[in-house]
Amino acid sequence: MTSPGWQTISTTFMKNDKPYGGGNARINGNDVISLKITDPEITFKPVSQRKDPEYAEPTEAWMNNTAETLNRNTVSFFRGTIDGGLRRYFLQPGQDASWWYSKDWSTQYISTDWMDYKIPEPKNGLSPHITKLWRSRDGGKNWTQLDWPENRNIGQLLFLDPDRGYAVGWGPRVWRTADGGRTWKAITVSLHATEDDAPRKTFDAVDLGPDGTLRVAYYVPQEMEDVQAEAMVERLNWDSDAFEPDVKLPGQIIVSLQTEQVLPDNAYAVYALSRIGPPRDFIKNPNENGHRTGALSAWGNRGKQTAEQTHTFDSRLMLDGLSVGKRGVLLVYATDATGEGAPRDITLASRDYGKSWTETNDGITQGVYFDAATNTQYGLYAYTLKKRIW
């Protein structure tokens, strides 16, 4: 199996938006939507106005203050076309964000997260964060702020359709809505997934299957000699209010959970990308580099399942993410920092459900994403947007 070649589709992608960056873009033919987190633009005085001509001097005083620049980070939503350019329709303060969009792009949800870097950090290190939730019903052109407690973090938004979905945040915690985000119901999370001294703990991975099953993964350390450390995956059916065990991966930490497109008989496979070994522990092992060999496991969505480890990756690679396409296409994203120079972005690809793999050195990219419906991978190199179809 050989890797398909990259095809250039634009050399000026989002070039007019400053500061530079393509954002978390999605592409459908010539149409584009993008969620972008942006630092404020820093400008400098001309040489004639500087106190010292040898040193660059920001135009305004706040531009030389790190806390102030962080406070002015913004979250933007863009929509437009590759050849005609993109227009900003949403702009809110925030240093972090999550989003969801419907298949036809008619509905979008965005959560923004902002903290004040100018106030002293509390002794417990838990600086206050402000979370806001927004929804658009007209393709992102107009937005409504939904009722959401500002101290309730949202790290992920996963929806079945424009009205039914989940918000997942620190704790970890899970909430469900069936009315387009107007009301939310808290779902109880297993105590094994939480830690009393880590109120901002998150799941290691989360996925919403095509049948509405929410799966979450977390690591359970070895607390007793007869209890093995393992990655636990639990599932929550849409019509249930309680998580139940799905599978266990002994001695591993899950990096990503992904499900394939639903098959005609509603059966599908669940894939887990994981790292073999315990979590990194700087306190006990300060000199440990944290490198772990990666593995891929799979199981089905029906009945009691056992995960099968289908592949172990080269030990030099640090696994970053997983995409599952149609007709057996799997992509694993990894970083190789073992050679000279800058780390290289690697795409590992399989077209036979993980039985065989090819490795492609993609250099240094900025994304953008994989379209599972068409098996199309997009990559951004500066202003040059490329695609390849697996």
Rank of each mutant, 00 (worst) to 15 (best):
P4S: 02
N16T: 14
N16R: 15
Y20L: 14
N28K: 10
D31L: 09
K36T: 11
T38M: 12
V47T: 02
K51S: 14
D52C: 01
E57S: 01
P58W: 04
E60Y: 09
W62Y: 13
M63A: 03
T66H: 02
A67V: 06
G80R: 04
T81V: 09
L86K: 01
R87E: 12
Q95K: 08
Q95L: 12
S98I: 06
S98E: 07
S102F: 03
K103I: 14
D104A: 00
T107W: 01
T112Y: 07
K118W: 10
N124C: 11
N124Q: 11
P128C: 00
T131V: 05
G139E: 05
K141W: 15
P149A: 03
I154Y: 06
Q156T: 15
P162T: 13
Y166A: 04
G171R: 00
V174C: 12
T194S: 12
D197C: 09
D204P: 15
D207Y: 08
T213W: 00
V220S: 07
V220Y: 09
Q222A: 06
A229V: 02
M232Q: 09
L236A: 03
D239P: 14
D241I: 11
F243P: 07
E244W: 11
V247S: 00
L249T: 07
V255R: 10
Q258M: 09
Q261N: 13
D265K: 04
V270E: 06
I276W: 12
G277H: 12
P278L: 10
P279A: 03
P279E: 00
F282I: 15
F282Q: 15
N285D: 15
N285V: 13
E288R: 09
H291F: 15
G300L: 09
Q305D: 09
Q309F: 10
H311R: 01
T312G: 03
T312V: 05
T312I: 04
M318D: 13
G325Y: 07
Y333A: 06
T338I: 01
I346T: 02
A349P: 03
Y353I: 14
G354F: 07
Y369Q: 11
Y369S: 08
N375A: 01
Y378K: 08
Y381I: 09
T384L: 05
